[in-house]
């Protein structure tokens, strides 16, 4: 039983990173209709910025703040410089654009910082919390806290502030928003900035565990895509629950389903996703949209 609970905990802690990345995917998708395959690489860039700041002598927490702000700026710049030229209904073009961003960012990171994995010190120290035969590392607990705080901030921003309201208005119906005098371009870049800031948190939480390398977020991105599906990409609560669920199912599948092991453990999680999609295409928490002919 202890082992089961420990594996559940481990899975949930892994899922925290997926949840944060999935949230970033969701915000971008809602705003610009883009399945942003470069979201993981953007998170990598954020983690490298934080690391470079600590190397320059800046303490870890200010370094993280700098990385988050820099990511937000980068997100706005990418929207403004690249993404806005592709119309939102061109799903395939947008996805391809995401791929080119992924390749480009990967190349830049590899050129600037090299491909050797680097140790990224945990901002939460290196202690372990033991309770009832179970354990959590400071990094795991801190990761949950940081991601949780980010989600809370996002929830408040999106539902309680005028800024968030306008952001949602533009994302949901750009034309009506335009009648209200909102410049959609400006607000969509704000959406990208918010998404990249959340993605940056995902990268910073993942880096101490995974080791900083250009390919650090490849697997988490795949998992985040699954999380967005199972939870419903249009729901902010949904993607977070989805992320945790994917982490949990992967850990349990690898341990308890014979034959899956450490590489096919994702099959269990993905099978669950596909089952959910077939029953409820918009995901567990997603809303079906009504189309008028």
């Amino acid at each position: 039983m202890t082992e089961f609970l420990q594996i559940v905990l481990d899975g949930l802690m892994t899922g925290v990173v997926y949840a944060a990345l999935a949230l970033a995917l969701g915000v971008v998708f809602q705003g610009t209709g883009m399945l942003n395959l470069s979201q993981g690489e953007l998170a990598v860039v954020a983690a490298y910025i934080a690391w470079a700041c600590t190397q320059a002598g800046i303490p870890i927490w200010p370094a993280i703040a700098i990385a988050i702000v820099a990511s937000a700026v980068l997100g706005a710049v990418i929207y403004h410089g690249v993404v806005r030229f592709v119309p939102p209904h061109r799903e395939d073009s947008l996805m391809t654009l995401g791929v080119t961003l992924l390749l480009g960012l990967n190349a830049i990171v590899s050129m600037v910082w090299g491909t050797d994995p680097r140790a990224f010190p945990s901002p939460f120290g290196t202690w372990v919390a033991n309770f009832g035969g179970l354990r959590l590392t400071s990094q795991q607990l801190g990761g949950v806290a940081l991601v949780g705080a980010t989600m809370l901030v996002m929830a408040v921003v999106f539902t309680r502030t005028t800024f968030g309201l306008r952001l949602r208005a533009v994302a949901q119906n750009p034309r009506s928003a335009a009648y209200l005098g909102l410049r959609s371009g400006l607000w969509l870049s704000a959406g990208w900035a918010a998404a990249c800031a959340v993605g940056a948190v995902a990268g910073i939480v993942a880096a101490p565990t995974a080791g900083l390398s250009p390919a650090m977020m490849t697997v988490p991105l795949l998992m985040a895509l699954a999380a967005a599906n199972i939870g419903g990409i249009s729901s902010r609560v949904g993607v977070v629950v989805g992320g945790l669920l994917i982490g949990l199912l992967t850990a349990i599948g690898g341990r308890y389903i014979p034959g899956l092991g450490g590489d096919l453990n994702v099959v269990f999680a993905f099978a669950a996703v596909i089952a959910v999609i077939l029953v409820k295409p918009a995901g567990l928490f997603g809303r079906e949209s009504v189309v008028r002919a």
Partner: peptide, 21 residues
Amino acid sequence: QVAAVAPGTADLSAQISQFQA
């Protein structure tokens, strides 16, 4: 116990728990 994981996997906390158990 054998943990054969895909390249790029970095978080093996669940596998380590399994090893310990």
